[in-house]
Amino acid sequence: MPEDTRIFNFCSFADLGRRMPLRFFLFSLVWFVLTGYDGAGWIIGFPAVLLAACLSLLLSPSPGISISLVGACRFIPFFLRQSTLSGIDVMRRALSPRPVINPGLVSYSTFLPEGAARVFFVNTISLLPGTLSADLHDNRVTVHTIDRDQPIWANMQNLELHIAVLLRVSSVKEKK
């Protein structure tokens, strides 16, 4: 993938000098969105942003991910569509005269590497139609499904591939 599609790159070595300004910028953006054009607010805002940036570096020095812009362009519409469908799906099941559910547990092993990618995967599962991540042991995710007749396996793989593209995970290397 060409270099210019990267917007963030946390991948590099432990160079604080590079990560600190980026996080400072991101937290400043959040502060700006929350407080608006109020200049005096930065008297509190500046120390708060600085502390937040330091704290985030302390808690998670290197997330080890980089977000691909192309992946984000594909992932966001996919996610919005799927989560809307999941809401409609739940509404249909809840409002039908007899709740149409056929729940069960499915175990799925993911090729996504440990850390941010896997956490992101687990959290996204819960917002997709018919699936809910119930447990995570190493790379095995226990998924609770509301309907065992749905193609859970295919949905999981689809989501996994979208996340792999979004977070630039090379699927070939990790897959066994």
Partner: peptide, 10 residues
């Protein structure tokens, strides 16, 4: 949990 998480977020 299915009902709560998905429907409310949408």
């Amino acid at each position: 949990l299915h009902a709560l998480t998905k429907a409310d977020n949408v």
